[in-house]
Design a protein around this nucleic acid. Structure first.
Lengths: 132, 132
DNA sequence: ATTGCACACGTTATAGCATAACGCAATTGA
DNA sequence: TCAATTGCGTTATGCTATAACGTGTGCAAT
């Protein structure tokens, strides 16, 4: 799937996420876009919904926040399962992929005849700098 | 770590979760315990906090819900990373462990000098029965 | 050209999830 | 006895997410 041209709201939300140091909540995004005419949460959530669908933004379930995908110009849906390491001190997020992990999880899923739609892997802890 | 004697509120919350077919939200638990004197969310959240700490209950981050651990009498913290498959149709949850997945994730973490505190693996989709 | 549809958008209101801050009571251990 | 800890109850509040309504625009089929 290729990413279609973004609408105005989608572009604004995406730009905010791309320029951010770490993940942002929908309401934080809203606050950053008030100067651009945003007034209500739905304006953010609707844009996020599309950006998630296009695979250019990820949702971090464990902290109710969103980040721009670490692979600019690419569709993350094609990389298999995406895993995240989230520093609880500085908020930095590292995104990675491990095919062996994918393989093991998919093997389990297959054995159970479970039909996966969306898989979340999130490691919360301290990054190297913050753990020192 | 062994599980200490549960307090009254902790027991009530745990019993509700154990008897439930699937995961419950904190507010659902609250409603089920109104007859037992529960009046406020904090009564539930405080009990859950302890039950999570004892490892007898898990939090499902992706659906803001809680389940009793599938290994009665045991402390799940000792099983390594716990993974969940959550059926989005019937709500059923399957809990499993895969040491190879643990190993791969811990290898990555180690290479990055990241210090993990809590790891979430959740697969949402359809169980065999619901996918048919 | 107009009708019908799909989609993005704006607004208001509401639902659902979680915690802050206060105070009280019981327990424990120095 | 005193202080520290823990559990509990209550009120209030904050954060996260969606429902439901209506508007406008572009575009394709008739």
């Amino acid at each position: 799937m290729t990413t279609p041209q973004l609408t105005k709201n989608q572009s604004l939300v995406f730009d905010v996420l791309e320029k951010a140091e770490g993940p942002l909540s929908a309401y934080t995004i809203l606050d950053k876009l008030r100067d651009h005419g945003f007034r209500a949460p739905l304006q953010v959530y609707r844009a996020l919904e599309k950006l998630l669908e296009y695979g250019v933004v990820h949702r971090l379930e464990s902290i109710n926040s969103f980040v721009a995908c670490a692979h600019p110009g690419d569709d993350c849906h094609s990389h298999g399962i995406v895993a995240f390491a989230i520093c609880e001190s500085c908020g930095q997020v590292m995104e990675f992929h491990d095919h062996e992990v994918d393989h093991r999880l998919m093997a389990w899923v297959r054995a159970q005849k479970f039909k996966p739609e969306k898989t979340t892997i999130e490691i919360r802890g301290l990054c190297e700098a913050c753990a020192a």
